[in-house]
Structure formats: C-alpha cells, structure tokens
Simulated scan of single mutants.
Amino acid sequence: MGTDMDEVSPDLAIDTMFACRKTAALRAAIELDLFTLIGEGSTAATLAAAAKASERGVRILADYLVVNGFLIKEGDTYRATPSSRTFLVRHSPAYIGGAIEFIAAPEMLSQFLDDPAACVRNGGSLGLANLSSDNPVWVKFARAMGPLVARSAMALAEEVAAWPKKPQKVLDIAAGHGRFGIEIAKTLPEAEIVAVDWSAVLELARHNAGEFGVAERYRTIPGSAFDVDWGSGYDLILLPNFLHHFDIDTCAGLLKKCRETLAPGGRVVAVDFVPNEDRVSPPFPAAFSFEMLATTPRGEAYTEQEFAEMARRAGFSTATAKPLPPSPASLIFFE
C-alpha cells in the first residue's frame, strides 16, 4: 500500500511556475497561423517557409506544442490534433484562436503578473482596473471573444425560442460583441434588440448586427448600465457575463433597475459562471473568482444561493441556475 509520501511531487508547482510559457507559445502559434498552415502535415522547414519565420524558431515552437498536446509529431512531420483542427484552424467554423488577443493581452496579463499578492492583500484590484469608464480593453474583448461565446449565444437563443411567450423587446446589458442579443434576433424575427455598453464597444456590436442581417432591429444606447436611462417595457433583459464584475449589493441594485423596467411577465436572464457551494468545483467556474480578484475591485463568481440573495434584495422571488453547454457558464433566471 502506498503512503502519502509516494504522492509528494514538485511537478504541479513547477508546471504552474512555467504556465505562462504555454500561453506565450499558443499566442505565437496563433499569430503565425501555424495551425492553419500545417494542413494535412508539414515539416518545420515547410511550415517556416509558409509562415515566413525562422526554421529553428518554428521547429522549437512546434516541438513545444507537441509536448503540450496541440500537435502530433511523426518523424519530422507535424500534424494538428483533432481539437486543434476544430478550434485553432482559422477557417474552421468553431475557430476561437482570436480570443488570445484579449485573454493574453499585455494589459490583462499585467494585472495578474505584476503584483498578484497586492490584489490578495487588498481583496481586489488596485484601483478600478477593467471597470474604469470607457476602458479600451472592452473593445479588444468585443473583437476577440465573440467566436468563443457563439455556441453559448445560440444555446440561449434556443432556450428563449422555446418559451410559450416569445420576447419582442429585448435589452442586452453590457452587450460587448452583441452576440447574445444578435442570436435572439436571428432566431426570433419579431424581436427588437436594445444594446447598452460603452460607445466604442457598440460600434463593433452594430457592425456584427449588420453582418448577421439584423441591423434594422438592433438599437444601441451608449454609457454605463448603472447610469443611463434605457427605457422600459422589456420582455427580456439579458445580463451576459456582467454580474461577476461587482459585489452583491451593486448587483442587487442593478437587478432592481432591471425589474422596474420589465414589461408585465418579462424576465431577466444572466449568463455567468456558477460554482458549487463549496466554491472549488466545477473547476472553471470555481477558478473564475481569481480572475475577478485581479481585474475588478470587488467582483467574483457567485453561487446559486448568492444569486438568489441578489434576487430577493432586488424584489424578485428567487434565482435559479441552469447549465449552458458546451460552455462552463450557466443561465440564471431571476423570477
């Protein structure tokens, strides 16, 4: 029988210390478009020629990607794994490589790596971080993250389309790329979308609405969701990936504003990461609080019970969470 000492290893600590190198390698591969250029199989020499890069550099990067599970190496030939072909080849319908432009943006990484202990001591970011007004990081977010949430946005639209009473007037708060509201507009031809976000972000949302053929039913209101008058009579108010940026009191105040601007029978639906009550499972939602610790003053990933508390403070009866596969996010219904 093994003992606890048999399992003692520095591997996890060492791997975590080196983890940012994996991000750097993936970013380089995406910027050089190696996953697309590799085709059915390529050597370092042919890849380097196609990417207009050093053969030595491409060989070392490709080997590193093999070690970390992104590529397969047979002799001198590199091939993409099925997952890499699906998500990292640029012409794939499921391509998500562009998300690296936000997730690994220098202004994002600096918030985690410059002085992480200070965020822990402070209980949140030093200053407003990502929550400063008209922060340009949200334009980068809107450009990069739309494809990453596309399937979740489609799943939300399917959920809404199955309701007995289809919403016709929809408010999308902190719309960003606009994909959640746009997918509802695509699915429900009678639905009109009103999107709230910073003005520079809304330029991209309007562009995306045009690309998806719903521009004539897509209106925007620039400014902070906490401050602007967004009107009333909404059948559905969306809060996609927004509440986790704030503390419970602030969330409850926004939800109260939402409730007061709903039409009779209207609903509020958030998209968010919901950890279990133990706060350490499932992995991605549980880990997301650390993301908020570094990038917001008081945000975190909330449990279903905490969402229910927000709901009660805002005048709703309760909040219930429902998984939103294939993403690690959930839908939260405030009723």
Rank of each mutant, 00 (worst) to 15 (best):
R21L: 13
T23S: 09
L26S: 03
A28L: 15
A28H: 09
A29Y: 02
A29R: 05
I30A: 03
L32I: 04
D33S: 14
T36D: 07
E40H: 09
G41K: 06
A44S: 15
A51D: 06
A51T: 06
K52E: 13
A53C: 08
S54D: 15
S54W: 06
E55I: 11
E55L: 01
G57E: 13
V58W: 08
L61I: 09
A62C: 15
D63H: 13
V66R: 09
V67G: 08
V67S: 02
G69D: 08
G69A: 06
L71V: 12
L71D: 06
I72T: 13
K73Q: 15
K73Y: 10
E74R: 15
D76K: 14
T77W: 01
R79K: 05
R79P: 00
A80G: 07
A80L: 04
P82F: 00
P82I: 01
P82T: 01
S84M: 04
T86H: 04
F87A: 03
L88Q: 06
V89C: 14
R90M: 11
R90F: 11
P93L: 01
P93Q: 01
P93I: 05
P93W: 01
A94F: 13
A94G: 00
Y95Q: 04
Y95L: 07
Y95A: 05
G98S: 15
A99F: 06
I100F: 07
I103E: 06
A105C: 06
A105R: 09
E107Y: 03
E107C: 04
L109R: 13
F112M: 09
L113P: 00
A117R: 13
A117E: 12
A117T: 05
G124F: 07
G124R: 07
L128Q: 15
L128A: 15
A129L: 05
N130M: 14
L131P: 02
L131V: 01
S133V: 08
N135Y: 11
V137E: 09
